[in-house]
């Protein structure tokens, strides 16, 4: 498999965000994507019926919203070229503010603190307009190399 940093650099210079999404099978399955905007990266999850968790409302599964936010944060770290390995989530905490309706969901991420080994990231998910927040999340990622896995 191609070295991760090489892949990130290629994707950045080609402006090909999808190449980074496609790196991870689960992200591809969710159908998420992202683009570079003047306010930073904007992550997007188009609605699909098989993402529904509550068919009465209907609403997107809370787990899907969480997964989308977690992976958006991971891609943000990669895009910033702040990790030479695929970041590993250490902990993840999410607050659900309102149901995510049957429409496209967006995520913005900010890397709050980037250390040698740990990144702290905050994310918010919204629909329609950025003020209409459906969930906020905070999480830590470990950025150490695979050889150090047992040292977690």
């Amino acid at each position: 498999m191609k070295e991760l940093m090489e892949l990130v650099q290629e994707a950045r210079s080609a402006g090909d965000c999808q190449r980074l999404v496609d790196l991870v099978p689960y992200a591809r399955m969710l159908g998420m994507k992202f683009s570079v905007t003047d306010k930073g990266l904007l992550f997007e999850l188009p609605f699909r019926k098989d993402l529904v968790g509550n068919y009465l409302l209907p609403a997107i599964h809370g787990g899907v919203v969480a997964a989308f936010m977690e992976h958006s944060a991971l891609l943000q770290i990669l895009w910033n070229q702040e990790s030479v390995v695929l970041p590993k989530v250490v902990d993840f905490s999410i607050d659900y503010l309102r149901p995510a309706r049957a429409e496209t969901t967006f995520v913005n991420c900010s890397v709050i603190r980037q250390g040698q080994r740990i990144a702290n990231v905050a994310a918010s998910a919204w629909q329609g307009r950025p003020e209409n927040i459906v969930a906020t999340a905070r999480m830590h990622f470990l950025l150490t190399r695979q050889e150090d896995d047992t040292a977690r």
């Binding site: 099978p25 399955m29 787990g63 899907v64 997964a67 590993k88 993840f92």
Partner: peptide, 19 residues
Amino acid sequence: PELVGNPYTGWLHGGAVVT
């Protein structure tokens, strides 16, 4: 295979586990 979060290690994605 489609639930994998790390193609280098084969680990399930944390997001699938959250669900």
